[in-house]
């Protein structure tokens, strides 16, 4: 997914002379072709996220479209004030690409585990947040980023995910129905769409109940049309995210629901995600997701208990 994202930025740069890449001391060999073919617009700077985000703002003021890339925790936590003031306040078209959203960097510990990036970024006015579930969706969304006028945060997951979005029309700000909406639905963002599809299959196999899977690749702005339909026409919704539930994707759905007229609200909404704590464990991403109950067996059980 990460490779697809960066390759797509290169694709954009080949077509548009204003597209520019800024890395913060990434691994060797990243986007070598970009560097070779368009060296002026390939910038590899040091470990200086504050200056890099400010610099990207200045470049955007000169009508460039910078794509800034480093590890998700560093691009959201270290330079948060630069993201707020330089990018969001000035509403500049700078795209931040965060590697390792969620528990991807499980063995590297809490400094590298991006557990709250969705929460903190979604509080910012003018920010768009994209969290795709596979490489196909990533590519299609990145290709659309030049249409967005303000700052964007792209959350990259582990990579190598099964392609599940091939047959869908993918647009920034639009949700997709990976499994038809029913009275009972999983609502996902990022790679949790994959977990939800597996959980939905298990419910069907075990209990012969159809459960919908509705995936939001854009956390902000939410697809309010789809959400309104979901909340007014279905009975049970489980939101799933690889982010702490405090202030995250699920919270944004509850916030939206609270604004709806109570006469049309039908669905009971439950949020599932990471707990509000720093991980005490290492291991792999899958081990941590299992430890925090973000896996198909648990979600299958939870959904069934809500339906019963």
């Amino acid at each position: 997914m990460r490779k697809t994202c960066l390759d797509t930025v290169y694709e954009l740069a080949k077509k548009n002379k204003k597209v520019l890449f800024i890395g913060s001391d990434l691994g060797p060999g990243v986007l070598d072709n970009f560097k070779k073919k368009i060296p002026d617009r390939f910038l590899m700077e040091g470990v200086a996220e504050q200056a890099i985000v400010g610099m990207a703002a200045g470049l955007a003021m000169q009508k460039f479209r910078p794509y800034v890339n480093t590890i998700a925790t560093f691009i959201t936590r270290r330079c948060f004030e630069q993201v707020v003031v330089d990018l969001c306040l000035h509403n500049l078209p700078v795209t931040l690409i965060g590697n390792g959203g969620g528990m991807v960097y499980a063995p590297l510990g809490p400094t590298h585990q991006a557990i709250e990036d969705i929460s903190i970024m979604r509080t910012l006015p003018n920010m768009t947040i994209i969290s795709p579930c596979d490489a196909n969706e990533m590519r299609k969304l990145v290709l659309q980023t030049p249409k967005i006028k303000g700052p964007i945060y792209i959350r990259i997951a582990r990579g190598g995910e099964k392609i599940i979005t091939k047959k869908y029309k993918i647009n920034i700000g639009k949700a997709i129905f990976l499994k038809k909406m029913t009275n009972y639905n999983f609502v996902t963002t990022g790679v949790t769409a994959q977990i939800a599809l597996n959980a939905a299959k298990k419910i069907k196999d075990k209990f012969n109940i159809d459960v919908g899977v509705i995936h939001f690749s854009t956390v902000k702005p939410l697809d309010e049309v789809v959400l309104k339909k979901l909340i007014s026409k279905s009975k049970k919704i489980i939101t799933i995210e690889e982010n702490i539930t405090d202030g995250g994707f699920g919270s944004s759905i509850l916030e939206f629901s609270s604004k709806l007229n109570s006469k049309i609200k039908k669905a009971d909404i439950k949020n599932f995600g990471l707990p509000s704590s720093f991980s005490k464990k290492y291991g792999t991403q899958d081990e941590l997701l299992k430890f925090y109950d973000l896996h198909d067996d648990f979600l299958c059980k939870k959904m069934y208990s809500l339906i019963k």
Binding site: Q50, A51, I52, V53, G54, M55, A56, A57, G58, L59, A60, M61, Q62, K63, F64, Q82, D86
Partner: peptide, 10 residues
């Protein structure tokens, strides 16, 4: 200074 740096680089 970082913003100015970006403008100057641009």
């Amino acid at each position: 200074s970082p913003i100015g740096l970006g403008i100057a680089l641009g």
